[in-house]
C-alpha cells in the first residue's frame, strides 16, 4: 500500500513537471516495488513545487486513466476510449483550474510525417470530445509526437497497441 501511494505521488509529481512523460508514470506504477530508489529521489523536490490540489488532481487522473488507445491508422475514439474521456471530462470539471495537454502518439509502423499528422488528429479527437462534454476548449492544448515517444519499447503488436494513444497530461 505504501508503495502504491508513493507510486501515485511520484506519478503526480512527474506529471506536473513539464518534462514528464506518461511513460515514466507507467514505469513507476509498474516497477514501483522493485525500484523504490528512483521514485524516492524524484518525488521530494517536485512535490515541494506543487500545489496540493494539483497533486490530488493528477493522482486522480492516473486512477481514472490518462490515456486512450486507437486502432491502427485510426483516430476514432473506441467505446472504451469514450468512457475514459467521459471520466476525464468529469475530472476536469471537478478541478476547474487544471489545464491539460493532450499528446497524440502513433506506433512505429508508419512514416514519420504522416504519423505526426495522425498523432495530431488523435489528440484533437480527445480534445473535441472533452469540449463536447462541456470542458472549456481554452483549458486543452494538443501536441503530436508522431512515433517519436513510444510508451512501450518493442517491435510487436502488444507494444504497438499501447503506443497508438492519446495521453492527457496536467500542465
Amino acid at each position: 500500500m505504501h508503495v502504491r501511494i508513493l507510486g501515485i505521488l511520484a506519478a503526480a509529481a512527474l506529471l506536473a513537471a513539464c518534462s514528464s512523460t506518461p511513460e515514466e508514470v507507467a514505469e513507476l506504477k509498474g516497477a514501483g516495488g522493485a525500484q523504490p530508489a528512483p521514485a524516492a529521489q524524484a518525488a521530494p523536490p517536485t512535490q515541494q513545487a506543487m500545489r496540493p490540489a494539483e497533486v490530488t488532481a493528477a493522482g486522480e487522473l492516473a486512477q481514472i486513466g490518462d490515456r486512450v488507445l486507437y486502432e491502427t491508422d485510426q483516430a476514432t475514439l473506441t467505446p472504451t476510449a469514450r468512457g475514459t474521456v467521459e471520466k476525464q471530462a468529469a475530472w476536469m470539471k471537478k478541478y476547474p483550474r487544471v489545464t491539460v495537454t493532450i499528446e497524440g502518439h502513433c506506433d512505429e509502423r508508419g512514416t514519420r510525417e504522416y504519423n505526426l499528422a495522425l498523432g495530431e488528429r488523435r489528440a484533437i479527437a480527445v480534445k473535441n470530445y472533452l469540449v463536447s462534454l462541456g470542458v472549456e476548449a481554452a483549458r486543452i492544448k494538443t501536441i503530436s509526437y508522431g512515433k517519436e515517444r513510444p510508451a512501450v519499447v518493442g517491435s510487436n503488436e502488444q507494444a504497438w497497441s499501447q503506443n497508438r494513444r492519446g495521453v492527457t497530461v496536467v500542465n
Binding site: E113, L116, A117, E120, R121, I124, T142
Partner: peptide
C-alpha cells in the same frame, strides 16, 4: 498549430510544408 514536413522549392525561394492551424494538416 504544428508546422511540419518542410521542403525547399527548387529555386530555394520558398518552403512548402504542412500547417495545421485548425487541427487538420
Amino acid at each position: 498549430g504544428m508546422t511540419f514536413a518542410p521542403r525547399f522549392s527548387p529555386d530555394g525561394n520558398s518552403v512548402i510544408m504542412s500547417l495545421s492551424t485548425d487541427g487538420n494538416s
